[in-house]
Simulated scan of single mutants.
Amino acid sequence: MIDANKPLSIAEIKKVLQTITDPSDERLDAFRLDSRKGALTALNSWERKIEKQQLKEMKLQEMLVYEKRAWSHGKKLVAGIDEVGRGPLAGPVVSAAVILPKDFNVIGINDSKQLSLAKREELFEVIQSEALAIGIGIKDTTVIDQVNIYEASKLAMIEAVEQLEVQPDHLLIDAMKLPLSFPQESIIKGDAKSVSIAAASIIAKVTRDRMMEEYDSIYPGYGFSKNAGYGTKEHLNGLDQLGVTPIHRHSFAPVREAYRQQHSSL
C-alpha cells in the first residue's frame, strides 16, 4: 500500500503511470518535479507511449475520411475492397470486401504490408469479430493464366463483393474500378488511406498466407510458407530442382521458363 506521506519509489511511479491515460492528470505535475533520474526516465517513457497512441488515433481518424463522407451522404453499408497476391509466381490471388460499423474504433489498422505477422493475425481476429460483413474472393492459377493477373484480381474483387452477407451501398476500392452497379470510389494506395480498405487488405493477406502455408505441406521444397509464392531464391531453386507444381502461374516468365526446361529434358 502506498504511503501518501513519503515520496513514491520509482517502481511505484511506474505502476501509477500505467493507470494514467489523460495527459492533464495532476499526478503528472508532481512526477515532473521529481529530480530523480529514474522518475524522469519513467515519465519520458510514459509520454512517448501516449504520443504514439495519439498518433495512432489521429491516423485512424484520417483513415475514416472516405467512410465518414459516404456516411454523411446517407450511405450505411460502405465496403472496403482490396486484393493480395498479384506478384507471386504461385498461388491464387485473394480479395476481401469488408463492411465496418460506424462506431469502429480499433487502433492500428493499416496497410497489411506495413504490419508484422503477429499484428496482422491479431487484427484479423478483431476485424472478423467487429465487421458487419466480410466477403472473400479467390481466383486460382487456372483463371490467372487464362485472363491475366489484372483481370483475375478484378474477378476476385467482384466475387468478394458478391460473397458479402449484406448488400453494400457504396464501395471503396484500392486502385480499381469494378463493373458493378454500386456507387464506388477508386483510391490510389487506398490500403493506407481508408480503414475499410486496410481492413480488407488484412483479411485478404492473412487468408492467402494461410492458404500458402497449406500448399507448403502439399508441395514442399519451394518455401511457400515463408515466401507466400513470391520469387525468392529458395522458390527459384525449387523450380529448378523440383519443377513446376499445379499452383504455379504458367503465364509468369520464370515459371514458363522452368516448365520449358523441365519438359525439354524429358
Rank of each mutant, 00 (worst) to 15 (best):
K119L: 00
K119E: 06
K119T: 04
K119Y: 00
K119Q: 06
K119H: 00
R120C: 03
R120T: 00
E122A: 08
E122G: 03
E122L: 11
L123H: 02
L123R: 02
L123V: 03
F124G: 05
E125G: 00
E125H: 09
E125M: 06
E125C: 06
E125K: 12
V126C: 08
V126F: 07
V126Q: 10
V126H: 05
V126L: 12
I127G: 05
I127Q: 05
Q128Y: 11
S129Q: 15
S129K: 15
E130Y: 04
E130W: 00
E130G: 02
E130P: 02
A131I: 13
A131P: 12
A131C: 14
A131Y: 12
A131R: 14
A131L: 12
A131V: 12
L132F: 14
L132Y: 10
L132S: 13
L132A: 12
L132N: 12
A133S: 15
A133N: 09
A133E: 09
A133H: 11
A133K: 13
I134T: 09
I134M: 11
I134E: 08
G135V: 11
G135S: 08
G135D: 06
G135Q: 10
G135N: 09
G135H: 11
I136N: 07
I136P: 08
I136F: 10
I136T: 10
G137F: 08
G137Q: 07
G137L: 06
G137K: 05
I138K: 10
I138E: 06
I138S: 03
K139R: 06
K139E: 09
D140P: 03
D140H: 14
D140W: 11
T141M: 08
T141K: 07
T141E: 14
T141Q: 12
T141W: 00
T141D: 09
T142F: 12
T142Y: 09
T142K: 15
T142M: 11
T142R: 14
T142S: 14
T142L: 14
V143T: 07
V143N: 01
V143Y: 01
V143S: 04
I144D: 02
D145I: 05
D145F: 05
D145S: 07
Q146Y: 01
Q146E: 15
Q146V: 02
Q146T: 13
N148R: 04
N148F: 04
I149V: 10
I149K: 01
Y150A: 08
Y150M: 07
Y150T: 11
E151A: 13
E151V: 12
A152R: 02
A152W: 03
A152T: 04
A152D: 04
A152P: 03
A152V: 04
S153V: 03
S153T: 14
